[in-house]
Design a protein around this nucleic acid. Structure first.
Lengths: 234, 234
DNA sequence: ACAAATTTTATGTCTAGACATAATATCATT
DNA sequence: AATGATATTATGTCTAGACATAAAATTTGT
């Protein structure tokens, strides 16, 4: 038997159970002892064990079923989480000075491809904005965005000279849902010019569609400068 | 006052609090009522409110501090989570037939750059493996991997002709930590040949370093075929 | 042997109350 | 005014016990 700390918290239990799993004392597929049993072993209440196991389940380490008990996941679900910061914060976090420049700002009727992307009705009004974000006066990100005026009518009036649509939208329509697609693409002329790279050079691209309770809010294409890396740990 | 369900669960509270935040009843920065107060309003125990608020905090919606109370996050921390599937699963999920081919497999001394990447001692032995993953006989992903033989000595003996290092490592060394870096790069000759694209074409690249309780396990560079997109929702 | 009804069981969730802890606010001292 | 000690407070965590619920295991009916 192992020596237990004076007071066993859910973190201790979580850690110890995880340790046994990692050390193959409880290999993948193993049916773990029930909560009551573990509570007895660790000398604590079942609720404490419950919290530990719940978190292990959230982390994708174990799989729990009512009555079925908890078992070690056969294929641990590894997942990365990326934070999606404001461009400004991202730039400033690197210790660089952030600057923003508006390139284009016009109200328009949604082109066909955008209609499809956002499931918009025909003749929908959208605000089309192009701008560029700098880090220490070097181009950092080129942004090509469409905003659905039906959901955000103020977009047509707002002056995007000082504040980027990125930041304005977050203050205007927070707590949205979104889908992001990351890919590598070769720089077309406008993108290449804006980012100061050669036409055809590889560029890291992100496309994002944003909804507010089912209604499409905005579609944006982001092109990152040469050497950009998206980093995450898990 | 609103009509409450007969039994108020933590989900109800979480949902209701979130609703008020989204509807700007509690705009960003607002100091929320304390747990005791909310418990009184919802007619439940403080622990129930606690669980709801804890989850809102985990979700990055609110910010909690002891004694300071809970307040609505000024800039909601949006985060995407990507699942990291096995290449095989990824390919098969697209309804394609998976195939794997080993290109190179040699034991070697870690080159300097790898020493640095993995913080390895000099003259470390590593297994260097190159292989390619197909979807419906079309190149899908080119893999260039180094495995630390100190942590995974069996790597030098294992026959990677049938089973990819990807799958073998997961069964051999599960529950690792990792850092991933995604970027766009232009295809060098070997990559271009393997993926069947032109030299210099943009390629989506992922680099991953994996540790097992502090010890570096493997470094891998993954190059994806033209048109690859990494998709996530949040 | 098969299907339907019943029991059993492990997890899911809630409660009321308690003590812990970090951070702020307040008060006393130099 | 700056410093240090002390009280206050909101969240963090735990407990013991309870009832809920999904799903497996068993019994019953045909």
């Amino acid at each position: 038997m192992s020596v237990m700390p004076q007071k066993v918290g859910y973190r201790d239990i979580k850690q110890e159970v995880f340790r046994r799993i990692r050390n193959n004392e409880w290999p993948p597929g193993t049916l773990l002892p029930g909560e009551v049993e573990l509570a007895a072993e660790f000398g604590c209440a079942r609720a404490t064990v419950n919290r530990a196991m719940q978190e292990l389940s959230d982390d994708g380490i174990i799989d729990r079923k009512r009555k079925g008990g908890s078992r070690v996941n056969l294929t641990p679900v590894r997942q990365v989480t990326f934070e999606i910061p404001l461009v400004r914060s991202e730039v400033e976090a690197k210790g660089a000075v952030y600057k923003y420049e508006l390139l284009y700002n016009k109200s328009d009727i949604a082109p066909l491809w955008l209609q499809n992307q956002l499931s918009l009705p025909v003749h929908s009004h959208v605000q089309h904005i192009k701008c560029i974000h700098f880090a220490d006066d070097k181009p950092y990100q080129y942004e090509d965005r469409w905003i659905n005026q039906k959901v955000v009518p103020l977009a047509s009036e707002f002056d995007f000279l000082k504040v980027s649509p990125n930041e304005w939208l977050i203050s205007e329509v927070p707590y949205t849902n979104a889908e992001v697609r990351f890919s590598a693409t070769s720089a077309e002329k406008p993108v290449a010019d804006a980012l100061g790279v050669g036409v055809g050079e590889p560029v890291f691209k992100a496309e994002r569609i944003t909804w507010l309770s089912g209604e499409p809010v905005t579609f944006v294409r982001l092109y990152f400068a040469r050497g950009y890396e998206m980093i995450a740990s898990y």
